[in-house]
Each structure stands twice: as C-alpha cells, then as structure tokens.
Amino acid sequence: MGVFHNASKLWLVSVLLMLGLIITALLVGSVTTPINALWDANSPYYEVIWQLRFPRIINALMVGACLSLAGLLIQNLVKNPLADPYLLGVSGGAAAVQLLVIVTGLSLAPLMLFLFGFVGSLLAALLLLKLSYHGELRPNKITLNGVVLAFGFAAFISFVLATASGQQVKSMMFWLMGDLSFAQFNWLMPILLLIMMLLLMKKARALDLLARGDLFAQKSGVNTKQLNLQSFVMTALLTSMAVAQAGTIGFVGLIIPHMVRLLVGYQHKHLIPMSMVVGAGFLLLADTLARTVMNPIQLPVGIFTAMIGVPVFLWLNRKL
C-alpha cells in the first residue's frame, strides 16, 4: 500500500509541484528573469523564456516520462528491481549511430539526428529480441544478452572517442552523459508516448498479474508470451526515443518506479501515469540544476540525475 491513500490529494500535490518546477525552470538560467516576462511580450526576456527555455523544458518532461515508464516495464518484465531501461543495450545502438554522425561532421536537422539515433537503437533492440526469443521471450536471456550487447557497444564507442578530435570528444562526452542543451521540440515523442500510455493502461490488470510471476499470470488467464513481447517492444521504443533525443541519462528508469511504488502501491493503473509524472518532474529538476548550479556554464544533466539518484536509491534500498 502506498503512502498516499487518497489519490486525489496525491494528484493535487503532483500537479502543484510540477507547475512550481515548470515556472522555476522558465525563470532561472544564465539570466534570471522577472516573473512578468512570462506574459509580457515586450519584455527583453520573453523570447529567451518561450523560444529557448520552454522547448527544453518540454523535452526534459518527455524524456523523463519515457525513461521512468520504460523502467517500470523492464523491471516487471525481467523481475529484477535493479533493471534499468539501458539494460536492453538499445542506448548503445543510438550512441553508436549518433556519435558516428558527429565524427563524420554531417550537418543534420535535429529531427533527422533524432531519427538516425532512433533507428540505431531499434536495430539494437531487434538484435536483442532475436537473441532472446526462442518460442517465447525469456527474461533471463534478455538480461544476459542485453549486458553483453551493452559491453560491445561500449567498446565501439570507446574506439570512436579514441580516434576523434578534441572538440568532437567534448561534444560526444556531453551527449554520453545526457544533454538537453541542443534538443529541440520533437512532435513525435508526445504522440508516441501518449499512444503507449493508453495501450498500457488497458493492460494494467494483466501487468499486475505478470508482476506476481509468469506462472501465476498464465493460471489467471494472461497470455504471458504476448504481454512479455509487448512490454519488450514498448520498453525498446521508449528508451530509443529518450536516448535519441537526449543521450544516455541514468537513474531515472531505475529509481522512479521504486519511488512511485512507495507512493501509490503496486497497481499499474496508478503506477503507469504517476511514474510518468514523477519521472518527468525529476528530470526537469535535474536539468534545471544543470543549467544553473555553475551558471553560466551548463553541465550534462546526467551528472545531476546520478548525484540525486545514488543517495535516493540507497535510501529506497532500505525501504524496499
């Protein structure tokens, strides 16, 4: 049972906190802006807020929601509380493709760069699916094959970094640590995220049963082969979108599902939407810190998700 028994109070608190985070993120940065600049089109800060900060905030919210939902699915799929979306190794596929684009000096529109990374990560996911599917999807095979593929991609990425120029290495390292500074609004993400959320909400009861074990779910009438495969595909899609948009950002998919379980319990009809909200808020908080802590220097957001995530995970580990 979660800490909050009254769902309406929890959602009210979540909405108020999210609004506070969004307004704070709009107003702070390399230049702190007055609150009236939010609506005053004549303010010199108006364009900074709505053309620079607002798209970045939307991206942070989308990426955080994708990673936290992917973490919820992969932990349910492999029955491992330490599972993370990057366990699938699909982040390596996106990284390999997008780093090659940086090395070759290709000048691509943000949407094209996103699509290149998206395709690379999906190809990695298809390879993992091929290796792990033998009549049915085997969670233990996913874990082992995903780790091996991740090491393989890491070796390739190390090779690219070792042979790149100094300026290219800096850009790559920022991307590998998670970077939203150059991300632009991508209309594909909210559409795909909404579709997957609605599909998962329809399967919330089946996911509850699957969390208690494949055998129990089968005896309860759940088609576990189909549900496991669907969970895998959605996890791969969500992770692919997040990595292609913002690089590899750790801890969001690992700790957010655990935090939300403490808040709302174990029913997926509550876990799915709340994981998305908390994950979105967590990444927005981390990105706001990345923009402001060493102002005017902007740091990779992955630094702050790790700095917050490590103590939070250790605290959660005592609670769970």
Rank of each mutant, 00 (worst) to 15 (best):
H5W: 12
E136L: 13
L113R: 14
A242I: 06
S132V: 13
L263T: 08
T239D: 13
I23Q: 02
R56Y: 12
M196A: 05
I57K: 02
M173N: 10
S275I: 08
S30P: 10
H268A: 11
P296Q: 01
P55H: 05
I22Q: 11
P190R: 12
S132A: 15
F232H: 07
P81W: 03
D179F: 05
W39M: 09
G29I: 10
V169H: 02
S165V: 05
A286T: 00
G221L: 10
I142Q: 10
S158L: 04
V222F: 04
L209M: 11
F118K: 08
S220V: 00
G250P: 03
A41I: 13
M1I: 13
K9Y: 15
V169T: 12
A124G: 03
L285Y: 10
I23K: 02
P257T: 01
V277A: 12
K9G: 00
I49A: 07
G93Y: 01
V63W: 04
P44I: 09
T24C: 15
Q168P: 07
N36P: 01
V301M: 07
L52D: 06
A306G: 11
V301S: 06
M18P: 11
S68F: 11
Y45D: 15
L99I: 14
V222L: 07
L21V: 08
A37H: 08
L284I: 02
L207E: 00
P300M: 01
M1P: 02
L129H: 07
A60W: 07
